[in-house]
Design a protein around this nucleic acid. Sequence first.
DNA 1: GTAGGTGATGTTATATCATTACATCGCGTT
DNA 2: AACGCGATGTAATGATATAACATCACCTAC
Lengths: 142, 142
Amino acid sequence: MNGDHHHEHAHAARSDLTRNQSLVFDTLEGADAPLTAYNILDRLNGEGLRAPLQVYRALDKLLDLGMVHRLESLNAFVACRHPGCATHEAVAFAICDDCGSVAEITDSSLVDALDTITRSADFKPRKTTVEMRGLCSDCQAA
Amino acid sequence: MNGDHHHEHAHAARSDLTRNQSLVFDTLEGADAPLTAYNILDRLNGEGLRAPLQVYRALDKLLDLGMVHRLESLNAFVACRHPGCATHEAVAFAICDDCGSVAEITDSSLVDALDTITRSADFKPRKTTVEMRGLCSDCQAA
DNA sequence: GTAGGTGATGTTATATCATTACATCGCGTT
DNA sequence: AACGCGATGTAATGATATAACATCACCTAC
């Protein structure tokens, strides 16, 4: 603890994770759509995970570390796709309701707009959720 | 049905609502914080509502009509505070985690930013959620 | 005015998502 | 050896949401 970090985003590498945390993270990273905690549990019951809490605890830690995002509108989770997990503020998600794909988007205009809003309302945000549900490029064709 | 409406937002007045829908809407409108479906059910069990589905069905209809919003990050609902419920796109919510107050915000810069994002990603949004959780002006003082 | 359509209602049961409570274990520090 | 501390395992429960089915009220068409 050297005092240089304002946030607790240590950005632990996968090697720092416990067994349960690794299992959960690998499952999310290997999925091509968001997974619920119970989806993850189903996929890991061969590895010895039997209770929801084992998954939820791992997810809590991974969320803390910024390695996983929670999609509020789905009650589901995705692995962070950011190269290096650079920014952990004002990420927007474009979620396809047809194929389940999720695009993770950072945009400075969006950050600016949200920042302006909070300033003028004198609101101090702790966590911001931006989720767009609709159809991705591929699925609009169909 | 005159064909002039692209959307199905008939903006029914309260007088067009059924008994259950009115009860649910009035409960939400009278609350000073978001309520879950079960919160609403608890407050209305004196009026003859006994099953969750009675509340969820009323909420579905009120959501369709644009008279109520769902807050995804809380799994809860609020009455729309827009004068006349003018715009039903890209509304942002500032939710105080301390006192539970919810500010409903529309901002053209935000709409523009989201629009730009969806254009460049060729994403067709059906519903957009923007929720900021944090501390309102009043509660920052404490 | 009666047959049928449509949307709201009531009720039971069940599915889905998440946490509380408590005992235990591994491991580094004192 | 004793302790602190974070992770783990397990059972039970709480909280949110929907499925399935029967019925009712009202409007419209014939």
